[in-house]
Design a protein around this nucleic acid. Structure first.
Lengths: 177, 177, 177, 177
DNA sequence: TATGAATGAGAGTTCATTCAT
DNA sequence: AATGAATGAACTCTCATTCAT
């Protein structure tokens, strides 16, 4: 499954045939179907796996109300996760932006997204009660854009400086005006 | 070609067979090849077309140095263009995030990106001489994230409010600290 | 038609599409069908044309009985013709050796072959009455092999020396033993 | 593979589609590609196979210098081989005379040709030191013409008589004058 | 006479999936 | 648990030919 994630992430889901996966894990094509019902189901499980891991990371730290420090910590976490699971995120983006994505995968991912950003609604609500939703959307855009840039061209910019700038932005509260 | 853009944008380049395109424009598969040498070339031409249109929009307004007003105007333009060419941008994102993208398309797009963002380097250099590059990356992330969210789920948020917030951010200069 | 012969000879009948021919003669594909009913018929006419020309060359010189000098002259003629119509012969060989050749073409060519070699039956009958048929076959093999080698790799040997050797062979009568 | 050789030989490489081959061996088109990477590679393997067999036949008998008896034996061998592998030779001729032949096939065949005829250069050099090359070309033409006639119309002449005549020619040394 | 848009059959090839062993 | 031969549908692309203009 690690091999599959690697292949899918590197070459794209469509471009990786079951034959390639089979060769990658050095078993026969036929045997692959003893472990996964279909190619779709295989992808689905890969995504599930990774999503669960990500939940594990975040759920432990962030439940209930969120303080300012926890918010900044969350940003740190996102950057760490993004760098650790780059392959997964690359796959996710290439899937997300491909219309007609597998339904189950779509559900899981949009669930993840909702859970994470939902968690911060209360936070933003407290910080900027005038329009917390737009505050959320802004934050979400910023993070998604960052991830996208990092995931597909990690060497094209200094990620730590960007992280610093984002944290700075949310520290000096100037976004509240 | 409009039909192709529509189909590619809706279902993804890989998922749209030449047969589907042919059916879409109600001609025979064979005849399609009187107009386009190959599927790749067809995509390439679609992208070229749209890229040229975009250049036309921006080049007219922005040449040489950029004032603060022009910068804000540019943000407006991006939002207008994003809304007008949503199909194209959807296609672009789905292509960009697919590994092994067609080379010609890649060239065109990275050229467009460089030209546009390069234009703003001088602007940011003036506004925040300490670290204009990170400023650019931040701006680029924000816009890309916004586009991505809009392009794939336009109904999920109020785009005008987001635009307003972005312009506000760049107006009160708090990002310079 | 010269263009067609050139193309067919150079690239092979199968490999030359009607589009290529049309481009070669700089008329439209459609118009081509005003002159030739089909691709087959086009080939047929090309072959016919050339065959007639060859008949014209030989018929004038060789009718009725053949003397030894006329026989040697014939060999000369074959070599001249082979060098002049190399393109045609190249096409002929590539057609002959392709099974399922067009019937009409096949007829014409086998007719040509029979006429020419038939002409020499009487000659060989006189020269070597014991087995004129084998004498003919030997002669025919020698000439066909020579043509084939010349037509497909003219630069690979000295054709004049070969001609000289063949004529020498038929001059010193040692083949009659 | 025997079926393929048979089909290719009978109908010509171009004219035989993979579908026909598949039908011939009564498996699906798709399955064919488990055995051969492509149509070209299939042809290539057929040719390789036959060429190796031919090498096996000749290499065992003829190494180093060649006596007159061995030379006559070689002619015998050629006739035997020609009759045994008629299908293969038919395919070879139809390929050779088709422009743009597959490179790999061409290599194998020209290699075979060079090896075999090269072997006889020393022989002719001894027999006719004045012009061994033309002697070779003459011999080569004669054999190629014979093969061509036999391969495409075996019933049109008595091959044994022709063989006899050829051997006779090379026996009474009258070609040396 | 000339065009070129249009067609449909068929080419080689790929691939997810199945199944007897 | 494991194989790999087998399948059939789908893919991109080609081409001889037709026909309205």
């Amino acid at each position: 499954m690690e091999v599959s994630l690697d292949l899918f992430s590197r070459q794209g889901y469509e471009a990786v045939s079951m034959a390639k996966v089979a060769k990658g894990v050095e078993i026969s094509k036929g045997n692959l179907y003893n472990y996964f019902e279909s190619k779709e189901q295989m992808l689905s499980e890969i995504v599930l796996n990774a999503v669960e891991e990500i939940y594990r990371d975040f759920d432990s730290n962030h439940d209930g109300e969120i303080s300012h420090e926890e918010f900044l910590k969350f940003i740190d976490d996102v950057f760490v996760n993004m760098q650790q699971n780059r392959k997964f995120w690359k796959l996710v983006f290439s899937l997300l932006l491909q219309p007609n994505m597998l339904e189950i995968v779509e559900e899981k991912l949009s669930g993840l997204s909702k859970d994470i950003f939902g968690l911060f609604y209360t936070y933003f609500n407290k910080e900027n009660p005038k329009d917390p939703v737009t505050e959320m959307v802004f934050f979400s855009s910023l993070l998604k854009g960052t991830m996208m840039q990092y995931v597909f061209a990690p060497e094209s910019f200094d990620i730590d400086k960007l992280k610093h700038k984002i944290k700075l932005y949310y520290s000096n509260h100037c976004h509240q005006k």
